[in-house]
Amino acid sequence: MTSFLHATIIAGTPLFLSTLGEILNEKAGNLNLGVEGMMLMGAVAGFLAAKGTNNAFLAILCSILFGCIGALIYAFLTITLRANQTVTGLALTIFGSGISSFIGQNLSGKVVPDRVKYFLSPIKLPLLGDIPFLGKVFFTQDIIVYFSYILAFAAAFYFYKTRIGLNLKAVGENPYAADAVSINVALYKYVNILAGGALCGLSGGYLSLIYVPAWQNNITSGRGWIAVALVIFAAWNPCKALLGAYLFGGLDIIGFRIQDGFISKYFLDMLPYLVTIIILTLFSFKRSKKNSPPKFLGLPYFREER
């Protein structure tokens, strides 16, 4: 049981990072379907940097940077040029997977250098790690996992307790109103979308540097799409996103541990998606404001058209 939960946290972490990235995007009113692409760009860049420099810190930085570059393309097209967000996002996914295959074509099967692996291996936290059961599950992990715990609460604080968080909400809900009270809509959108891209890149880097840790073409295998679904599941709330990511991660791997005809494997495989559909349905019944998407999600903002 402990080992299962331990594995769940690891399986959930890349999902959480990219989910939080997408939440940042959507809070700013931009539906970014390029998560998978940004993850792949981050994954390949991080892997290449690890190979080239043998330095874990630089590798992670490179992942983040490449995620940002992907997001920058998207942000420029959708904010400055006001292109269709859905199409741009899909294009970014295709572009990201293409470029990662292209750069990684000679890297298949290569492994992350030992020095990087060692630096990123699980660390037992003093005191916290000694708590029976919980210590093993939550506090004997690698640094990115610890970082993701902090991130969940930091993001919640940012969204719900700070002035800029409130402004961001205004940008997503009604950019015209936000603009009227002199909030710089484009700046808010750019900053949050780039931060979101950074998280998606980090999530890809987590896969190629820590989770697998070797390069394989299309290493994300659709996790970016699960993240997009998770955003809805989590109702744009970072703490719920953390729980949701662990739930989805756990469901993804539970099948390997209870396989003997107990529950059908195929049923388990579809469970995360089924849960998402049910939650979506429930939300639309409840019509609560708390759980509804930002009003201007997916719509371009034209300043002149009032």
Binding site: F4, I253, F256, K265
Partner: peptide
């Protein structure tokens, strides 16, 4: 034996092996 129902998902296939090793 565990089934992954994938031909190509490095992370998931690793998890399947981890489950076996835990066993």
């Amino acid at each position: 034996v565990v089934w992954t129902n994938t031909w190509y998902d490095p992370a998931k296939e690793k998890d399947a092996a981890i489950a076996l090793i835990d066993d």
